[in-house]
């Protein structure tokens, strides 16, 4: 059951107010150090809100990866470990196997999860580790200054694809959600974006489902969030956000790629005819 948040009150200049929008408890008071307009901050907030709403802040242990979010442990307010580039899901596996009751979160970029850590990602997912992964796909290596990522789209200019990504030289952008959806160990995988208010809300719903998959012991869960890196894309924040919505989504279609909860419902529906009968007869009895 979700904990119903209490109405909080704050005092400002001696005046008493009802707090309608505050900082989630699962975030520390440290201001984000991400570039203005970057979605890492948005995503941190969504993850923290979900953790608060599920009432699991003090059960969470986070894996920080290597990328712009390397200091994510300064912002999330629970136990954290910083992992080597690409290894977050191996470290997470060790934590979860030793402490099955701990809620384990990994927060990773595209270079971390889909290049150097591809093996760790696929095998943690394939083992069905009860871990929730937030995968921030910004189609670039943000931290190291804008090199090509495995998810860089064809024609996209980066510092190592100065003429634009050429599939004949370096291959195609990799679609992790579609790949992982094929694995039986995966309970929930969805791709969302953060380019407008609606998509942000959808992202939050997906993050909550991903944690539910872990809490209900269903398997591995991941939300791939299309994010912007306006600085390294050399765009204004507004252009960058538009580019996510208009261009990235063509290559990385948002959607739910695996959802055991939906599968449960479908199963229930398939069994439904007999149940409906039973129900209706019950009704008539009443």
């Amino acid at each position: 059951m979700e904990a119903v948040p209490e109405k909080k009150r704050v005092t400002v200049d001696g005046q008493d107010y009802e707090l309608v929008f505050g900082r989630p408890a699962s975030l520390t008071s440290k201001p984000f150090t991400y570039c203005p307009g970057c979605n890492h901050g948005t995503i941190h907030r969504l993850v923290a809100e979900v953790i608060d709403e599920l009432g699991i802040q003090h059960r969470c242990v986070g894996m920080a990866s290597v990328g712009c979010s390397v200091f994510s442990y300064e912002f999330f307010d629970f136990d954290f470990i910083s992992c080597a580039h690409g290894r977050a899901l191996a470290v997470a596996t060790g934590v979860k196997r030793v402490q099955p009751d701990t809620v384990v979160l990994s927060y990773q970029g595209d270079g971390d999860l889909a290049a150097i850590g591809t093996a760790e990602t696929i095998h943690a997912a394939n083992r069905g580790e009860r871990i929730t992964t937030i995968f921030v796909n910004n189609a670039i290596y943000g931290m190291t200054g804008g090199q090509m990522a495995p998810t860089t789209i064809i024609g996209q200019r980066t510092t190592t694809t100065p003429e634009g990504r050429d599939e004949h030289r370096i291959g195609w952008p990799i679609r992790m959600s579609e790949m992982l959806a094929l694995l039986p160990g995966v309970a929930f995988v969805a791709r969302t974006t953060c380019h407008d208010a609606k998509s942000i809300l959808k992202t939050k719903v997906a993050i909550k489902k991903a944690f539910r998959a872990q809490l209900e012991d269903r398997g591995f869960s991941m939300v791939e969030i299309l994010s912007n890196c306006n600085v390294n894309w050399r765009m204004t924040p507004q252009d960058a956000v538009n580019w996510v919505g208009e261009e990235m989504t063509k290559v990385f279609p948002p959607g739910t790629y695996k959802d055991v909860f939906a599968e449960d419902q479908e199963k229930a529906r398939a069994d439904a005819p007999s149940k409906t009968k039973a129900q209706s007869s019950e009704k008539t009895e009443v």
């Binding site: 242990v61 894996m63 470990i81 290894r87 191996a90 470290v91 060790g94 196997r97 402490q99």
Partner: peptide, 14 residues
Amino acid sequence: VAAINMLMGASAAG
């Protein structure tokens, strides 16, 4: 590579 990193997690978890 994965094994030693799993160890890191297991050890960090006590």
